[in-house]
Design a protein around this nucleic acid. Structure first.
Lengths: 193, 193
DNA sequence: AGTCTTCCGTACGGTAGCGTATGGAGGTGG
DNA sequence: CCACCTCCATACGCTACCGTACGGAAGACT
């Protein structure tokens, strides 16, 4: 009798790219994109990897491209269902500041910002996001300069908050205090001179 | 005739600790605290290192202790010369947001936050700073809760701004636009409901 | 001067990962 | 069914670094 074998699956380049992203997420940086450990994790060997990619850099390139494409869109599309610009901004900040709202992958990439390919990926994602937030403020009636300023404040706040969430969570308001904190922040961002 | 020899200096543990901090600063993370390269840089060998320290962890420990002691004090003391709480807050934000105002070492440590010793060091420094900023707000007449909220906003903003400064500087207001941006931020933090 | 302690140089073995070479299994088309 | 192509396994050499062992130089002490 033949047992249902775990059916050794042939891998694709995408499988490797996703595994690399998972490794970055969990390992906290680009350093954990190591071929041999990844191979073990995928239940295969380096032989597979070097068939699909020429070297480690190529894998990183593929993984980062995949990240740039897939990460921001989903958040923006969910936020876009909100009716008014203000509710969108509120929803956006609520989403991204809740403890589980920040993908560790993002912080891992910030931690690896010295790597040139990561730098360009961050560049793209960051400018895109800031532009989107600035548009929200413009739709609220702020001037272009004001909008860009407040978008930057909001995004800087988000980045710092994400850092604190994962590095010093005890410094943040907990549980029931949190909504008030977030509301105070939104107010500060929306209040006019 | 005897040339003035470079006088081979005996090293101390502190020399190694400082070299480690420099390596973290320039290398962008804890990973660049590597004994053999450090030895080369100090013009010595591993033999020296393993005399002063038992292993790499001990060096990291020493370096981080040194950082925790020496980093925040200087900034706070300079700021304390300002007369009013508001001018102190303004000065503080001005200092830490100017492009050269953020020590890359700090970002390098945030990038290595997964390391347990780095985590505790960050914990100490962060809570100390946030407490100090919250005190400033309290002296401005805000309630304790408001003060803590705004201190967190300010500190999160600082962290995010630091990230952007070093990762995507092109996203930030440049040159002559910067003072206005900073002023708008300070206003947002100070404005009352 | 002789001894003792401090500090460092050097040689060694061990681990982790990159990249290469090469053979072979298993599916696919003629 | 045979030749071929796709994909993977294995073995190898190479680099970088950690930690240990041990000997020796150079000042300090008497």
């Amino acid at each position: 009798m033949v047992m249902a074998q775990p059916r050794k699956p042939r891998l694709t380049a995408l499988d490797w790219a996703d595994a690399a992203l998972a490794a970055i997420r969990e390992g906290g940086g680009l350093k954990s994109v190591a071929i041999e450990p990844l191979a073990t994790r995928l239940g295969t060997t380096k032989g597979s990897f070097y068939w699909h990619f020429t070297n480690r850099e190529a894998l990183i390139e593929a993984a980062l491209s995949r990240w740039v494409e897939t990460n921001t869109d989903e958040i923006i599309t969910t936020v876009e269902t909100e009716p008014t610009p203000e509710s969108r901004l509120r929803k956006l900040l609520t989403q991204v500041t809740k403890p589980s709202g920040t993908d560790p992958l993002e912080l891992s990439l910030l931690a690896s910002k010295d790597h040139p390919q990561v730098a360009t990926a961050l560049q793209q994602v960051t400018t895109r996001r800031i532009t989107y937030i600035a548009d929200l403020f413009e739709n609220l009636g702020f001037t272009e300069t004001e909008s860009r300023q407040r978008a930057l404040m909001a995004y800087s706040f988000y980045l710092g908050h994400a850092q604190l969430t994962h590095a010093v969570p005890s410094a943040l308001p907990s549980g029931e205090e949190f909504p008030g904190y977030l509301e105070a922040t939104v107010e500060a961002l929306l209040r006019r001179g």
